[in-house]
Design a protein around this nucleic acid. Structure first.
Length: 302
DNA sequence: CTCGATCCCTGGACGC
DNA sequence: TGCGTCCAGGGATCGA
């Protein structure tokens, strides 16, 4: 699942592989994940990919002006979110297209930049000028660029659970389920703790381990659980270092206690019940939920 | 404001 | 082997 480290890996790879290349033609498959498919098809050809950046969990392909120079269009970019199963990779045109290839951008060196996404949980949009600026303003700060004071302020100014805050892209941009769980385990904070209730020391610790974990994951080119591959088709290696994510029932590497998985803020959350003590009232709530409520609600769904 | 529920989508796991 | 069913999960959206 592409989160900050995975997207950073792809952005770096694309920067090396396709920056400076001109897009000659765009071929679309299924388009329900594209904001405005016609704009993507018509606006991209003729533009050069100037730079590839990561913006939260988005890839930002900065583009040059088109053939007809429109002074008012301002900065232009292709925004790509990989969703759960999105892959973006340059391949030779002669290479057969993978199943679920929905966008193929023919480049001026004979390769194609292909977007493959079986589940189409991703998003793609061609944006220019004010529209682009407004889109980027919706997101919070980058966890690797923000300082501790900004982090602490954002964690405290809302009353949500820390897990929800870490996942909320308007609070911090780029953190997803894997790195939220891993960071909370390392900082010994229960995912259901209210952000505003954390002690200064805990926030400080969380800030430090979040950066540490994200940086290490970037070095290892991200986590590949089932689908993620970099631009060369190589999986990441950080999944080997996961301490809680996907380790339900296995033992905590710090204390040996069995790792648990519960739903917090609507997301499955992995944690060590001994190292990460639950806030008051949480035990009862989660107990009730996982039994009666969980079953009946599932049955009603058709 | 925060929460849960629902939907989007497909492949893989599982039960029979 | 081949069905059917459940589930994963980021994000948008809606109602409580």
């Amino acid at each position: 699942m592409p989160e900050l480290p995975e997207v950073e890996t792809v952005a770096l790879g694309l920067q090396l592989a396709v920056a400076g290349r001109r897009i000659l033609r765009v071929t679309l498959g299924k388009t329900d994940f594209i904001d405005d498919p016609v704009a993507v098809e018509k606006e991209l050809p003729g533009r050069t990919i100037l730079k590839v950046e990561r913006y939260g969990k988005f890839l930002l392909l900065r583009l040059s002006g088109g053939e007809e120079v429109i002074p008012s269009e301002g900065e232009t970019a292709l925004l790509v979110h990989l969703g759960m199963t999105g892959l973006l990779m340059p391949q030779r045109v002669s290479e057969p297209q993978a199943k679920h290839t929905h966008v193929a951008m023919l480049l001026d060196d004979g390769r194609e930049l292909r977007y493959v996404d079986p589940r189409r949980f991703g998003r793609m949009a061609y944006l220019a000028g004010e529209t682009l600026t407004r889109e980027l303003e919706r997101f919070g700060l980058d966890p690797l660029e923000m300082g501790l004071p900004a982090f602490e302020q954002r964690i405290r100014e809302r009353r949500a659970r820390i897990k929800a805050l870490l996942l909320d892209q308007s609070v911090i941009r780029g953190v997803g389920n894997i790195y939220a769980d891993e960071s909370l385990w390392k900082a010994k904070i229960h995912p259901a703790q209210l952000g505003a209730r954390l002690k200064h020391r805990q926030v400080q610790k969380l800030y430090a381990v979040l950066q540490e974990i994200l940086r290490k994951a970037i070095v290892l080119r991200g986590s590949s659980i089932s689908d993620f591959l970099d631009v060369a088709g190589v999986p990441g290696e950080y999944q080997r270092h996961h301490r809680v994510y996907g380790r339900e029932g296995k033992s905590c590497s710090r204390c040996g206690t069995s790792i648990r998985r519960v739903i917090v803020a609507g997301r499955s959350s992995h944690y060590c019940p001994k190292c990460q003590s639950a806030p008051r009232g949480w035990q009862m709530r989660s107990g009730k939920k996982s039994k009666a409520a969980g079953k009946s609600s599932k049955k009603q769904r058709k």
